[in-house]
Design a protein around this nucleic acid. Structure first.
Lengths: 260, 260
DNA sequence: CGAGGGTTTGAAGTGCATCAAATAGTGTGG
DNA sequence: CCACACTATTTGATGCACTTCAAACCCTCG
């Protein structure tokens, strides 16, 4: 067993939640819970468990019985699906404030994806049954969750469209544009939120393709690349290049608030 | 103007709903409305409008202000998104019993896709505000709609996965397998529900690619093709070929009930 | 400094798209 | 009922985008 593997298993440090009130405040700030009944949040707190995980830790597996959902306190989490052949499709990559695993609530097929830590993270596990009860009882809560789910559905529609229509440089450009918002013009500088390998996976392409496509953007448009920092001299030139191959108009909102 | 074009415009025959009770019965049978309050269905009936449309009629455009949602009584409808460049991504293809356009309810960006009749259809238009009110007031209704939305979200996850991982023959095979269910073994015969061109679009490939990929399936597996009828001698051979490139196990339920 | 992963670059292969044209099918008017 | 027109489908030839395999480079962290 390698040293790496040991790390993965061992640095999942348990820590009880509910002590300092930090977890409470974080939970209360989740937009999805804005209209929850007071008792709901308390029930969540009582059963909240915050843990630290190291990179590569697998938090849950596609098909696992869904009893908890998760709120990310810090770090990055990759949601993905894996085939028997070993191929893997990245569903999404999430960070602080995002919620995941709540989709396991309705079906009995377990979670619809697997989740792996891709950057050391602190994750709060929350009981699904408490959420389920609240949604069933509180119309406003259900309504909010429905709205959030609808937003998410649109993002997925867009995702399917992009993967069908945009080529590799355009998908990267689109990703960058969504990072620089709401700045809509002039030279800007953005940092890739995570590994280029991960960005590539997130965009459904190979790392090599990502690298080549990015340098094609560099050659064709006014873009400078310094490691993970990318400077875009002319945002509108980039949006011209990208958004012709998209059904949305340019300042396309990235509606993913914290209600994944 | 061609003769065809006249047809498209003119055969949208208006007919008031609520007379024969047929529309009522159809609406009442939508699973999504199973738990609706009695007053809700009546409010829907009152404002229901059933119309006939010819092939190629565009029912709604991406971005249109969303005031209605739709229930298909018969025929086929294509949901799609179109870019400035003219490329088009098919979101889904629906038929009798399916509901669409309800996603326009929450956002103010209008409908998230365009809808076009691809086979002469009869469509019932229903007021979105009535649905919205019911969802806001009736916890059970909101809960059901949430469950339905979650199911849909899973189908989209699967869609993204398939387009990322499966090649053309596998995507076709997967499509066929979902048609033959719940028959899980032995020789079966299926009819493509619509044009091969449309199936190709639905699967995100060109008609030429579809044709070639299908004949590759014919050569490699025990499959016979007679026009739109496809005979599969060995379903398990097909599922072996297809499902290795999918995260789901074979008899993979096509959860799209009538609540699109 | 050295090991290991991330990133880039090169070379070759593959799958799908595109363009083009032939063939089959379908509905129409005569 | 046939001939025509139009569309759907198939087949062929070619090109391009992305993948795959391989190797070099670079960066970071112990």
């Amino acid at each position: 067993m390698t040293l790496k593997a040991e790390n993965i298993k061992d640095d999942a440090v348990f820590q009880a939640a509910g002590g300092g009130g930090v977890v409470e405040r974080l939970i209360a700030r989740v937009p999805l819970f804005a209209n929850a009944a007071p008792g709901f949040l308390e029930a969540l707190y009582k059963n909240a468990r915050s843990k630290n995980y190291g990179k590569s830790h697998v938090l849950l597996l596609h098909g696992d019985k869904a009893e908890k959902f998760f709120l990310i306190r810090k770090g990055w989490v990759k949601l993905f699906r894996e085939t028997i052949d070993g191929s893997q499709a990245v569903v999404d990559i999430l960070t602080a404030g995002h919620v995941f695993g709540e989709a396991g609530m309705f079906e009995h097929d377990g979670y619809p994806y697997s989740a792996e830590i891709v950057e050391a993270a602190e994750i709060i596990a929350l009981p699904l049954d408490v959420l389920d009860k609240e949604v069933a009882d509180n119309p406003k809560m259900a309504y909010d969750m429905l709205a959030s789910m609808t937003r998410h559905r649109r993002l997925q529609d867009r995702e399917i469209e992009h993967r069908a229509i945009q080529n590799a440089p355009q998908r990267i450009g689109c990703f960058l544009l969504r990072l620089v918002q709401p700045v809509a013009s002039g030279p800007v500088s953005v940092n890739l939120p995570y590994d280029k390998m991960l960005v590539a996976a997130r965009l459904g392409m190979q790392p090599e393709t990502f690298s080549r496509a990015l340098s094609r953007l560099r050659n064709d448009l006014d873009i400078t690349i310094r490691g993970a920092t990318i400077e875009i001299d002319d945002v509108s030139a980039l949006s011209d290049y990208v958004c012709g191959a998209c059904s949305a108009m340019f300042p396309c909102s990235d509606l993913k608030s914290c209600d994944k």
